[in-house]
Nucleic acid binder design. Structure first.
Lengths: 233, 233
DNA sequence: CCATGTGAATACTTTCACAGCC
DNA sequence: GGCTGTGAAAGTATTCACATGG
């Protein structure tokens, strides 16, 4: 009954894990780490789901894409499940990333405490500005953009972070791809075009606030129009 | 023909515009601004969709939730559409935000150039650390956490940003809510619990990288014929 | 004609509810 | 009994394809 849709015939277990699930696995990992720190050895889907802020059924469905790592009638072994998710996420190895753009945001990212415990290591900082090249940020000497190829090749880096102004984003993306990067996290307020096979994720700080502003506006206008209406929301 | 105007006619609190659409409207706004800067007065859904990096049908469907702002056989007037989306998003007014936590990330956010042009204004910075209080960051004097209530009330702020360590996030969220904040953007690597009626969005820098690492791992194991990575169970 | 706006079709996600196993 | 794992149902989102109207 095991369905195989993926064209990968390499023998590796390449179950198709839905994107929505992949995006939540790190949340479960964090929740499991929190439980482990509290000394909890085992937990039910309800508890873990609460820690993670999701519906228990969703949690179980998500975990079912990885395999059957729980025990019916009991729950999940915290450490065992933590390991299984970490393995599935590729966290049994460390991933080196290069950050391009060492302005305020790039500096903040390079100092971010949350990476190291999650298999992410900031391996290099790069900037186009000669003034910044050579300075030391979070213990790393900033390299010139021209050295990107060497850095990526030498350190076997496959993930790049764009923390430049929007205007530079596309060119930086192209240089990253040319250097061999195949995954990009883009913080610049601009779309970047990349060839097939390169993954891009985008984080846009002002878009997040704009979405909140939209909801604020709706709350405000709802208060105005319905002063006494408290029906099914 | 009768298009929905801004006040909801049927009791209001229900979802008019799908979340997925709301999340894309700021992207369309940015694309429209780019076109306007290039002097383009009018555009078809294809062109705008390309600028925005989405499928044209999706763009048209999204816009259809706002009303009929295009002209069949012609396209959209750039300036008119820009205004309509901005209005729907609440960008006809400026939204003041308070940032709590003036570490690397909070400082980077307060210096972020992209906010001002999108109706977002960093109105206040707050920190619990007495060493930071009184310092000036991006032209704003950092206030103590105790003054949050006054600041929020005085400046009529409804959006708060949490840029503290994860351990402080829940307490800060509670203080924000107590001060009257009804929308929170949480950058801390922790879940925060808030009462109903308060919106929280979460941006987790390391989760984004973990998702990319997952895809990298899959790419690597798909190429297993040539390369052999360690840590295969 | 032409591109919008939109029902209908498809794909994806979440939730329910219960069979199966401890 | 209790909780996992999972089909099936319900709910969203995306895409198609074409009628509609400038």
């Amino acid at each position: 009954m095991t369905l195989l849709r993926s064209p990968r015939l390499d023998g590796s277990t390449s179950r198709d894990i839905p994107d929505a699930t992949v995006a939540r696995l790190p949340v479960y990992l964090r929740a499991l780490n929190a439980l482990a720190e509290q000394g909890v050895m085992s937990c039910a889907s309800n508890e873990l789901a609460e820690q993670a802020g999701v519906n228990p059924a969703k949690l179980r469905k998500d975990l079912s894409y990885l395999g059957s790592y729980g025990t019916r009638g009991v729950g999940y072994d915290v450490e065992y499940l933590r390991y299984q998710i970490a393995r599935e996420m590729g966290q049994t190895q460390d991933w080196d990333v290069v950050i391009v753009g060492v302005g305020n945001l790039g500096s903040a990212l390079s100092a971010y405490q949350g990476f190291s415990t999650r298999g992410i290591r900031v391996a290099a900082l790069v900037d186009a500005d000669p003034q910044r090249v050579g300075t030391v940020v979070s213990g790393i000497t900033v390299s010139p953009l021209d050295e990107l190829d060497e850095i990526v090749a030498d350190r076997d880096i496959s993930i790049g972070v764009i923390a430049t102004p929007g205007t530079a984003a596309q060119e930086v993306a192209e240089r990253l791809v040319a250097a061999g990067i195949t995954s990009i996290l883009n913080f610049a307020p601009a779309l970047v075009q990349v060839p097939d096979g390169v993954d891009v994720r985008k984080v846009d700080l002002s878009i997040e606030l704009q979405i909140l502003a939209y909801h604020e506006q709706r709350k405000a206008s709802a208060d105005k129009t319905s002063t006494d209406k408290a029906a099914t929301a």
